[in-house]
């Protein structure tokens, strides 16, 4: 058992802490596990409450716009696809990632804005937080998701600004990517469970 024959001190310093994946991405992945469990808890609560209801949606309450929200869902998924495209461009040549990243931001913003419009429409139709179990769960579950979407969108805008100024590190893009994929990936499940 001889001590290692390092080529030079510098090599050692470089090899010293080579992370499996960058700290930010790792931390975000663990955070996403927690978040996924949060939504799993909400989904299971919703399923149990819904199964014990005699009629669904509850009397006097509007049906959720399942079909109309399909467009939003498609926009969000397209935004995630644009982000995948942005990563590919980024790895080849940073500057070419500007366009796909901008598309991802715009599609994400479209999702958030049209979800907001949908909320206003539902409020007008008499679906509020306290009007029924449907309203309570709708605003809590979709509200949680909207909160995540807004924060993730802010993160995407921040990465776009950094990219524009040439400061964006690969790990920063990776961190924003993980969070945005989570927001986009959990949405179709919520849509299928809650809206139908």
């Amino acid at each position: 058992m001889n001590p290692p024959a390092y080529g030079s001190v510098r090599v050692v310093a470089e090899q010293r802490r080579e992370p499996l994946i960058p700290n930010g991405v790792m931390g975000m992945l663990i955070f996403v596990v927690t978040e996924a469990m949060l939504f799993a808890g909400l989904i299971s609560a919703f399923t149990i409450t819904r199964s014990s209801a005699v009629v669904w949606p509850p009397p006097g309450q509007p049906r959720l716009p399942f079909e109309a929200t399909a467009l939003n869902t498609a926009a969000l998924l397209a935004s995630a696809a644009a982000l995948i495209w942005a990563r590919r461009c980024f790895d080849r040549n940073r500057r070419t990632a500007r366009l796909p990243l901008a598309i991802a931001v715009l599609l994400g913003a479209f999702f958030v804005v049209s979800q907001g419009a949908e909320w206003l429409a539902m409020l007008r139709q008499g679906l509020t937080l306290t009007s029924s179990q449907l309203g309570s769960f709708f605003y809590v579950i979709v509200g949680f998701h909207a909160l995540h979407a807004v924060v993730a969108l802010a993160a995407l805008v921040y990465t776009w600004v950094r990219l524009q100024r040439g400061w964006l590190a690969s790990s920063q893009l990776g961190t924003a990517q993980v969070f945005w994929y989570f927001v986009a990936g959990i949405w179709p499940i919520l849509w299928l469970v809650v809206y139908r």
Partner: peptide
């Protein structure tokens, strides 16, 4: 801890809404 706390955070928010905003979870 991190894999188990999510549902309780969800439940705590629902409980808080029940207690303060008048929902009926």
């Amino acid at each position: 801890f991190m894999a188990s706390v999510g549902p309780l955070v969800a439940g705590a928010v629902m409980l808080l809404f029940d207690h303060t905003l008048g929902t009926a979870f």
